[in-house]
């Protein structure tokens, strides 16, 4: 596999969607491939259903754990509003992988604000490349919504130069055994979702 100089990515979602675990899976895969890796996580107050973002940086040597604005190669978003929120971190040539799920924040639920319309279109007009995914309609996410994050990891994995065995090993390392089988299925759905570019 061709070596990469650097991959910067952001994982955005809503507290409880598995952003922390996703960051750990990607970091474990990068580490297994011999790269230096750093992540920056959101904990505490931000996790009570709030907006959550994880930075993951992969390179021969990583310094700051935070991806500078405008420099992320990938934005992995588990919810469309959160994809829009962290769009400023994406580089002009970057790729957005977005789960087309809308989770309305409280100000929208109470009628104080409107949920942005045509979010995926906005993403398409702004980003180099957008891969929208109806994860909630795909197996096994439709019956196990909590596996949506790993399905998106599968899609991302296909775009990164790490072999599938590395990803499978990273899944086994990071996911508790009783949830591993269903998450492997989600990963495979993602892995086979897009033809290799």
């Amino acid at each position: 596999m061709a070596k990469i100089d650097r991959i910067d990515l952001l994982i955005a979602g809503v507290g409880g969607q598995g952003t922390l675990l996703t960051g750990r899976i990607i970091a474990a895969a990068a580490q297994a491939e011999g790269y230096d890796v750093k992540t920056a996580e959101t904990h505490g107050m931000a996790q009570r259903g709030g907006s959550v973002v994880i930075h993951v940086r992969i390179a021969g040597e990583v310094r700051a754990p935070l991806v500078p604005q405008g420099e992320a190669d990938f934005l992995l978003a588990f919810e469309t509003l959160e994809a829009l929120r962290f769009l400023p971190w994406l580089s002009p040539a970057g790729t957005v992988i977005v789960n087309c799920q809308e989770i309305k924040p409280l100000p929208v639920l109470t009628g104080a604000c409107d949920y942005p319309e045509g979010a995926v279109e906005t993403l398409k007009n702004s980003a180099g490349r957008v891969i929208p995914v109806e994860a909630m309609k795909l197996e096994p996410v439709c019956s196990q919504p909590r596996t949506a994050n790993v399905l998106l990891v599968g899609i991302l994995a296909r775009l990164l130069p790490f072999p599938e065995e590395t990803w499978q090993k990273a899944l086994a390392e990071q996911i508790p055994p009783r949830h591993l089988t269903i998450n492997r299925r989600a990963f495979t759905t993602g892995w086979t979702h897009q033809p290799r570019p």
Partner: peptide, 19 residues
């Protein structure tokens, strides 16, 4: 050093909330 960042529109905030 910085390229013009892609701009997101005015977005509704997502504050943390009581479960």
């Amino acid at each position: 050093a910085g390229t013009e960042p892609l701009c997101a529109e005015e977005l509704p905030p997502r504050p943390p909330l009581l479960c």
